[in-house]
Amino acid sequence: MLELRLVQGSLLKKVLESIKDLVNDANFDCSATGFSLQAMDSSHVALVALLLRSEGFEHYRCDRNISMGMNLGNMAKMLKCAGNDDIITLKADDGSDTVTFMFESPTQDKIADFEMRLMDIDSEHLGIPEAEYHAILIMPSAEFARICKDLSSIGDTVVISVTKEGVKFSTRGDIGTANVVCRQNTTVDKPEEATVIEMPEPVSLTFALRYLNSFTKATPLSNTVTISLSSEIPVVVEYKIAEMGYIRFYLAPKIEE
């Protein structure tokens, strides 16, 4: 028996909005520690890892580890029917091939039940070791989204270079070139507006902007985004989910032929 009750149902709504266009079908894994997902896009260039820890749920019952295959587009359609202030409960009986989403209005005067068929998805998980990164960038998530959006109107790849001066996002295309430099700025009145660069050593990597733009759909989840870079390995773009966990997007770099 599985029954997960999330008072801040809007978090789950936002999570689905941020991954439904990147990944079509995925397994949600439920265990005593929490509700998680790891899935790659169809080209295996990007990977999303979600964790919602069990403590973040008002009620978390998971009798045994269970993996539920879902079509994320259909799941998003059902979650769109939940109000932003609704409590969302996810229920599944053992051995059942459906999952039920229950939406309760804050005043408990409206309760909705949506039942969705589960899918069989055989997906192995990639082992992603915790790594020391050469550069870690923490910046306002809206700022990062704006940069990716602006640069993608000029070119389709971005070179992200981190030096002690700051971080530079560069692109070039048919109409010309664009460079955006963000300097470390911790003298702000609100911490979430700071741009922090931890850079043990300089790094420069090239990525496809369309994936980064897809990742920034998670912007509503967090005021800040953490971007971890190391030469020669995928970048990690992480949005914390309010004391519950995180959503991490990994993107493989492009290299010189």
Binding site: M40, S43, H44, V45, A46, L47, E124, H125, L126, G127, I128, P129, T157, T206, A208, I233, P234, Y250, A252, P253, K254, I255, E256, E257
Partner: peptide
Amino acid sequence: AREQLTMRQFYCFR
């Protein structure tokens, strides 16, 4: 042109 790598070239299935 630059070659787009994939996640599978960095991490293996566990």
